[in-house]
Design a protein around this nucleic acid. Structure first.
Length: 637
DNA sequence: TTAGGGTTAG
């Protein structure tokens, strides 16, 4: 008996010597029989292994759990992502008058952060101050993380309702006299963040800046900061698109003699990707290799994404291939890299390879590959994916629904697109825009405009993409006044700087309506990006309205940056022909035939059944070539 | 004891 007791005492004093959960269970069984006084120690060992069911069962057998037992179970709940239960336990503990300590607050604050319990988190902060633990580095870091997360949603309230202004008695009474069930998601955050007016609020970068200042204040009031403190702030800046500030923090980190770790690198990579700074990205990659982070999953996925964003797909793929154990995120990063760079077939090949490697598609991988179905107009594949999505209950996701709406619209089935849109429990700006664009591309301009106005009435503030959609609708339907009104509202009311796409839509709209000089003037007023995409529709309009003089001016403008544009010469030649200037048309055609040799011919294709039929200019190799030509002759009379 | 990845609309 004595020797068993000695062994158990030794193991309990050095729990790190216990190597498996079965050993814990053996010790537990022995202690439960002989030494119930050690039950609390066994509980802490169960929680060390994050073994939740055993921890809870054991905890429930304790007649009056100690602070040690309470904090073990609170931590265990939090570590297993049972955040609500963790907070309930914390409230119960406070309710019976047990004082929390520096071990328990980080777990509780983590639970508040994940649940987005904004006001409850503030009360916990007040309690931290009441117990004099605000200078504990772990608690401080947990607070920093909590406010950094909250700031993305409603951190102005952090500034206005700082718990530092509460008295100790106030904070204590909050945690003593409330019911955790009253702390459902506070209205500004969490699931309800789809609330449009709220979205509008935090889409403003200026406010985001102000919010991060409050997080920075928490950082500065900490008596000391470690790597976690810096990383938390850097992540906060990065997630708030305050990239310069994030980079500044890395420099400050160096001044504080702290070395960037894997967390730091994975926070910086999205910034480098955003700025398409491949040189800096390579530098980070090298630093990662030198410091042993080469296999870190967060870094490898960040690098894959960064290289893809910098249009260095080969580097992305090389890195991806070098990974010995690819998880679903590795696959998804590479698939998304292909799809976002227009390599839709390659995206599909990888998707199939992922399935062969027994990696099941997740919600995210599904939403990455659906746009490939949309662009390749492969409806059967898209429908198969939709079936999979329904079977796996991914269809509640806004990402999934928006991509499905877009896919069905692009594949020609606007009714199914509307069906998915109407079936959504809630909409966001992206899903509204997908549906508006669907209507616009199908020529249902009035439906698109109606939906755009409905979206505004619902309180959503349209962004530049939503305006592209509604302007496309106006352009396709020739709704000149409506289009110009939307364009002006975008600039004056919503303060959105027009981009290439907006100019292209309006120029096209004016051109189709015969207001050729207005269209020319608008394009000339563009500050940059006067590329072929914006001139060609005007040139097409010149042909329709037989305006040779303006067509020549347009081609002259285009020759300043794209002298070999075949489309421009075809349209100019056709414009000459339309007014009977056949000699000029022939001259342009001669020039064209010389340029054609330098150009890769365009290709179009159609899917019939399971087969894709592709056609290239001048290619007569298709087996049904004669039938196709006969059919075309019938169609064109 | 505290911090992190891939996704949707042009």
């Amino acid at each position: 008996m004595e020797s068993i007791q000695t062994t158990i005492m030794t193991l309990l004093k050095i729990p790190s010597q216990i190597k498996s959960i079965s050993q814990v269970k053996q010790i537990h069984a022995q202690i439960a029989k002989s030494f119930p006084i050690f039950t609390s120690d066994i509980l802490s060992i169960y929680t060390k292994f994050n073994f939740l069911p055993e921890s809870i069962t054991l905890f429930n057998t304790l007649p009056s759990p100690s602070i040690h037992a309470w904090k073990s179970v609170i931590k265990c709940y939090s570590s297993n992502a049972y955040f609500f239960e963790s907070l309930k336990c914390f409230v119960k503990m406070r309710g019976i008058g047990i004082h929390p300590d520096h071990n328990v607050f980080p777990s509780v604050l983590k639970a508040c952060t994940h649940l987005m319990y904004f006001k409850f988190g503030e009360s916990v902060h007040a309690s931290v101050i009441r117990f004099g633990l605000e200078f504990d580095i772990f608690t401080g870091n947990a607070l920093l993380s909590m406010y950094s997360t909250f700031q993305r949603f409603s951190a102005l309230q952090v500034l206005d309702e700082s718990p530092e202004r509460m008295t100790a008695d106030q904070s204590d009474s909050i945690l003593h006299h409330h019911n955790i069930n009253n702390y459902k998601l506070c209205p500004e955050v969490g699931q309800n963040c789809q609330n449009p007016s709220f979205l509008n609020q935090f889409s403003n970068r200026g406010l985001g800046n102000l919010r991060m200042q409050s997080v920075r204040k928490v950082f500065e009031t900490m008596p000391e900061q470690d790597v976690v403190s810096y990383n938390t702030l850097i992540m906060g800046y990065a997630q708030n698109t305050m990239y310069n500030e994030a980079m500044m923090m890395i420099r400050e980190m160096g001044n504080a003699k702290l070395k960037p770790d894997a967390y730091t690198l994975s926070s910086v990579l999205p910034i480098v990707a955003k700025y398409m700074d491949a040189w800096k990205g390579k530098e980070i990659h090298g630093y990662g290799i030198r410091h042993g982070f080469e296999r870190n999953r967060f870094i490898t996925s960040g690098l894959t994404d960064m290289y893809a964003n910098c249009k260095m797909l080969e580097d992305s793929y090389h890195l991806f291939c070098s990974l010995p154990d690819k998880d679903c995120v590795s696959w998804c990063s590479m698939i998304a890299a292909c799809v976002q760079n227009g390599l839709f077939d390659e995206g599909f090949i990888l998707f199939r390879q992922m399935l062969s490697a027994n990696i099941k598609p997740t919600l995210v991988s599904c939403s990455s590959i659906i746009p490939a179905c949309a662009h390749l107009t492969t409806l059967p594949l898209g429908q198969q994916l939709h079936g999979y999505i329904i079977r796996h209950h991914f269809d509640d996701s806004l990402f999934i629904s928006s991509s499905l709406v877009s896919m069905y619209a692009k594949c020609g089935n606007i009714k199914l697109a509307k069906c998915v849109f109407d079936g959504m429990k809630q909409h966001d700006l992206v899903s509204w825009t997908a549906m508006i664009m669907g209507y616009a591309s199908h020529g249902y301009a009035h439906d698109a405009i109606f939906l755009f106005k409905e979206m505004e009435m619902e309180g959503f503030m349209p962004n530049s993409v939503a305006f592209v959609a509604v302007l496309t609708a106006c352009s396709h339907a020739g709704l000149v006044n409506e289009g110009l009104t939307f364009f002006n509202r975008m600039v004056r009311h919503y303060d959105i700087t027009p981009e290439f796409e907006h100019y292209a839509c309006v120029a096209d709209l004016l051109g189709r309506a015969g207001k050729l000089e207005d269209a020319f003037g608008l394009i000339c007023s563009m500050p940059e990006n006067k590329t072929a995409g914006v001139w060609l529709p005007l040139l097409a309009a010149c042909r329709v309205h037989k305006n040779v003089e303006l067509a020549e001016k347009v081609v002259l403008e285009m020759s300043k940056f794209d002298g070999d544009n075949v489309g421009a010469y075809v349209l100019l030649s056709n414009t000459y022909s339309s007014v009977g200037k056949y000699k000029d048309a022939a001259t342009v055609r001669q020039m064209l035939s010389k340029k054609m040799n330098k150009k890769e011919p365009a290709c179009s294709w159609i899917r019939i059944g399971e087969k894709v039929h592709a056609f290239v200019t001048g290619d007569e190799s298709h087996s049904s070539y004669d039938c196709i030509i006969n059919a075309l002759n019938i169609l064109f009379g």
